[in-house]
């Protein structure tokens, strides 16, 4: 990401806070570890120098807007195209008040994965990215030199097709291997922008025992199924999984097979 974009972002954040147009700014700042920026709220214009934006900013800021739009005053938020899609979904579901958000779309070069502080390739969801436009924005920064081109949309289902083509016992074996690694940290659920229920059925006390593979499978069936027709394929679930489970496969399976409810008159 060009330095120019980050400077523009900081300037805009300062201006907006100084003029009182927004009461807080939602952006990224340097995190605890190198190359691991974290989302942060900025309320003081002098702190805006800490705003950061590079290819390591993998966090989707749209979920934080649920909390932010309950506060007094407007929030300035920086969104990449895939985050903007998530926010659109949240606005549709009346979780975020559009009036309370000032959205600046920032150019995206794709995010990279980090292993021990080092860059190691694009995120899987960025490799098969289908979103380069902004469905919602008030202003755009740094999009003119956006080098990304969207894939046609069939590439992202290749993984699903590969699993689908095998027989039932092979599919069972595949998921048994993958999901027996799950430690049920609930990170996939907590990061998901469309997982925003205040009371979650997966929080049941009897479920927090040492996880077993069958329970894990049904946990992930329920988690994925609840996003049916709502998942924007932002890829955060797979990104945050500490065990590297390809959770997006489940969501993409549902996206691939999705049919809206057809009510005949």
């Amino acid at each position: 990401m060009s330095n120019d974009t980050v400077l523009k972002m900081r300037t805009r954040a300062r201006e907006m806070l100084a003029s009182g147009e927004v009461t807080q700014v939602l952006a990224w700042e340097a995190g605890e570890f190198p190359n691991y920026p974290a989302p942060a709220f900025f309320k003081d214009e002098n702190a805006c120098g800490r705003i950061l934006y590079d290819r390591f900013c993998t966090a989707n800021l749209s979920k934080f807007m649920i909390e932010a739009s309950r506060n007094e005053g407007k929030t300035l938020v920086f969104l990449r195209p895939c985050d903007a899609y998530s926010l659109t979904q949240l606005i549709k579901e009346n979780q975020v008040n559009r009036e309370k958000a000032y959205i600046i779309g920032v150019g995206c070069e794709g995010c990279v994965t980090v292993y021990e502080g080092e860059e190691c390739g694009l995120l899987e969801s960025c490799l098969v990215c289908i979103k380069t436009d902004y469905p919602i924005y008030d202003e755009l920064i740094g999009t003119e030199n956006n080098p990304r081109t969207a894939t046609t949309g069939t590439e992202r289902f290749e993984g699903v097709t590969r699993v689908e083509e095998t027989d039932a016992s092979a599919r069972y074996g595949f998921w048994q291997t993958q999901l027996s690694r799950c430690i049920r940290c609930n990170a996939c659920r907590n990061i998901c922008p469309t997982c925003h229920c205040k009371v979650c059925m997966l929080d049941k006390e009897s479920l927090t025992n040492p996880p077993n593979p069958l329970e894990n499978k049904f946990f992930h069936v329920i988690r994925a199924y609840h996003q049916n027709g709502r998942c924007t394929d932002c890829g955060q679930c797979a990104r945050v999984c500490p065990q590297g489970i390809p959770l997006q496969l489940l969501n993409r399976k549902l996206i691939k097979a999705y049919k809206p409810v057809e009510v005949q008159p």
């Binding site: 699993v163 689908e164 039932a168 092979a170 599919r171 069972y172 069936v221 489940l250 097979a257």
Partner: peptide, 13 residues
């Protein structure tokens, strides 16, 4: 249909 498809995808007959 969505649920059955997902269960089938996960290896249930």
């Amino acid at each position: 249909e969505a649920l059955f498809g997902l269960l089938e995808f996960m290896g249930m007959e």
